[in-house]
Design a protein around this nucleic acid. Structure first.
Lengths: 139, 139
DNA sequence: GTTTATTCCTATCTTTTAAGTAGGTTAATG
DNA sequence: CATTAACCTACTTAAAAGATAGGAATAAAC
């Protein structure tokens, strides 16, 4: 029932980038340094974020990553859904969902659906902007 | 982010026993048969439920397991917390919680706490009785 | 146009945990 | 005392998470 490090790290990356709040590209090396995460491992996570269009990368000197949108345009759900395989609490609620033979008799399906909704609602209610350090912009 | 089979199976066991709605002890063999779960594996799960006082076991002929309380006295949260290691979405919210060095600077702690609460609230609002087959007792 | 900084890509390794199995011991009943 | 069934301890297997390595492509700087 745990959120994986992939999910947690991806959130931290997004927050880190949002806090730089610049239009410049920030190299992975810097992010990894600040966050204390291995560069190589972080690479594999950031790849997912780029593929999901939450970040854009630019190669070569002066390159790096930056957000594609303003922080308040990302929900935490958006971010986690990309790096967690799924946010569904049980596999029968996932996309592929190989139609359970017990589905009709299943006493627990509604329960899991409700839990799924509760989790999703919560995570989609919170934006990246909500997670930034409170000092910012408040003199 | 998945509930383990242990958690799911334990719920099914509890529902199965509640549906027998008898004061008699039900042998593991029967439960396993009805639920299509390996006896040996189920044994390891039921052990946890007994240890947690959700069930009582009786050995020997005529023995088996039965609920210790009425179905509406168990919440789903009670049941899952026993068999899932933890319902917490991140390890820093667990019991042992080896005090994270980033705790103060952590932008995401409040988020996870909120998620934890959302999950817990949901699961504690639903009782075992809510999961029984609707036909029962309604002519 | 060569050097340098950087993302991108593919593959592999390691560790951990979940899932499942096996065999033997104790207790209650008839 | 034979049978049924919980209880206990240990082991095995399989899958997933976590992490690492090396190099190819690309863009800017000089």
């Amino acid at each position: 029932m745990l959120v994986s490090t992939k999910g947690r790290y991806s959130l931290r990356v997004m927050i880190d980038l949002a806090e730089q709040q610049s239009d410049k590209y920030v190299p992975l090396k810097e992010i990894a340094g600040r966050q204390g995460i291995s560069e190589k491992y972080l690479e594999s996570i950031i790849k997912l974020l780029v593929k999901g269009k939450l970040l854009t990368g630019l190669r070569g000197k002066g390159g790096g990553y930056k957000l594609t949108k303003a922080p308040d345009q990302y929900t935490v759900g958006d971010i986690l859904r990309l790096t967690e395989e799924s946010l569904a609490p049980v596999s029968c609620l996932e996309e592929d969902a190989p139609s359970c033979p017990r589905r009709d008799a299943c006493r627990t399906l509604a329960l899991w659906q409700g839990l799924d909704r509760a989790i999703g609602d919560y995570l989609d209610r919170i934006t990246l902007a909500d997670l930034l350090r409170p000092e910012d912009g408040q003199p």
